[in-house]
Simulated scan of single mutants.
Amino acid sequence: MQTIVSGMAGRYATALFELAEEAGSTDAVAADLDRIKALIAESADFQRLVKSPVFTSEQQLKAVGAVLTAAGISGISAKFVKLVAQNRRLFALPGIFDAFAALVAAKRGETVAKVTVAEPLNDAHYATLKDALAQQTGKDVSLDVTVDPSILGGLVVKLGSRMVDASLKTKLNSIRHAMKEVR
């Protein structure tokens, strides 16, 4: 089964995946992209640089180069992100990261589940969730966990085209809606 990634982010991710495969550094590139994703999530300034169209490509390239150097990211990953900045496509990085992860997971025979939780999962909960999803799919599952305190509690799991929303926020909204109908 071939994983299909589409759109601009998919084309960039496919090109990077093919380069990484050719160089035999798919795992290293995946680790670098995870680090860059974490850097973006941790820094409001970096998020602004990635999302804002007001910066010129030269400004984006210079700033991204400095961040990558400071983080110790080099090689194919650094060259790729600099190319994306030069082409004024930094806004597409989250989609590129997701598409690349899907390609890597498909190569490994895994399925990627996007999980949103209110607070970070401890190792035991992470393993339990991973095992439960593996039993459901019959495949090895890798988790892409995002922490979003606004869901209040519970979790939201998206696996392929299926989504299970067991968040406290959704349950409270359902109760609120039901109470409005009773009046």
Rank of each mutant, 00 (worst) to 15 (best):
A13K: 01
N122E: 10
E58A: 14
F46L: 15
V156S: 07
Q59V: 08
V145E: 07
E18V: 10
D144N: 13
K37L: 09
V54L: 13
L159W: 06
F100Y: 14
A9W: 10
L155Q: 09
V67R: 03
A15C: 05
P149S: 08
Y12T: 04
K37Q: 15
V84L: 10
G109W: 02
V115E: 05
A178I: 07
I36M: 06
V64H: 02
A113I: 02
R48I: 10
R35M: 09
F46H: 07
A106F: 04
A20G: 01
S74P: 04
V112N: 08
T111A: 13
S150L: 09
A85S: 03
L33H: 04
T111W: 05
A101Q: 11
L90C: 01
S57H: 11
E119C: 03
T56S: 15
D27P: 02
V5C: 08
E58D: 14
A78T: 04
I73K: 07
L172Y: 06
D144W: 06
L143M: 03
K114T: 14
A28E: 13
T128R: 14
L16G: 00
I175M: 11
V54H: 11
V117D: 02
V141E: 00
S43H: 11
Q59A: 10
V67L: 09
D140M: 11
S43A: 10
E110S: 05
I151H: 06
Q59D: 07
D123L: 10
E22D: 12
Q2M: 14
S25E: 15
K180E: 15
E18I: 11
K62C: 01
A63T: 13
T69Q: 13
V156Q: 09
K51Q: 12
V112W: 07
A134S: 15
D98C: 01
L121K: 03
Y12R: 03
A13F: 05
R11N: 13
V182I: 15
R89M: 00
K37C: 10
K180R: 15
A71C: 06
I96W: 01
A71N: 02
A85V: 00
A118P: 04
D165C: 01
I151R: 04
K51E: 13
L19H: 03
L33I: 13
A70D: 12
T111V: 14
